[in-house]
Amino acid sequence: MKVNIYILTGLMASVSIILGVIENFIPSPVPAIRLGLSNIPILIMLYLAEANYALLLSLLKSFIVPIFSANIFFKLSLSVPASLFSFLCMFITYKFFKEKLSIITISVIGAVAHMVMQVVIVSLLYIKGLIYTNIAGVLLLSAVITGILMGIAAYKIINHRQIKEMFSRL
């Protein structure tokens, strides 16, 4: 039986959004740090489906997750550009270095790009003295660690037999 790509994209988008909302409730040692669980479905779509569906997923996630969070407009101003920049970086690395780099590194690049864009937006629009603090280092370290963890999770899922079968029936 063939699987409809739009249904699959919708399903993956719901998973991404639910994970994005759930991770708001996961406490972290430093506030403002998030696990990036919602990046796993985007990585899966990038690897197993086509990039345009992964972009659609990224866009849906970046617009819908802030609606379920506090400070909608503040979160939207961070989420949309950061998600798009993160996707762009992951897509370029995947397209040109797919054979050379593992999914873990692509996940780390996505997490770092997401963090860099958020720091740039906060520095430009909200807090101008941010560059004089050690916040960027703490956020970069957390992005690398969470990027590795999410990359491992995505790698395990992508190599799962049933998931592979499902995507092969597209």
């Binding site: 050379k100 780099l101 593992s102 873990i104 590194t105 780390v108 690049i109 770092v112 050690n134 960027a136 280092g137 703490v138 970069l140 370290l141 992005a143 690398v144 590795i148 790698y155």
Partner: peptide, 24 residues
């Protein structure tokens, strides 16, 4: 699964973050 280039890129980001945290 993980190649040398992956380790180099991840190590680069790790070192950069540690430098940014601990720089005076």
């Amino acid at each position: 699964m993980v190649r040398i280039i992956d380790i180099i890129i991840i190590l680069f980001f790790l070192v950069l973050s540690i430098v940014l945290i601990f720089k005076p």
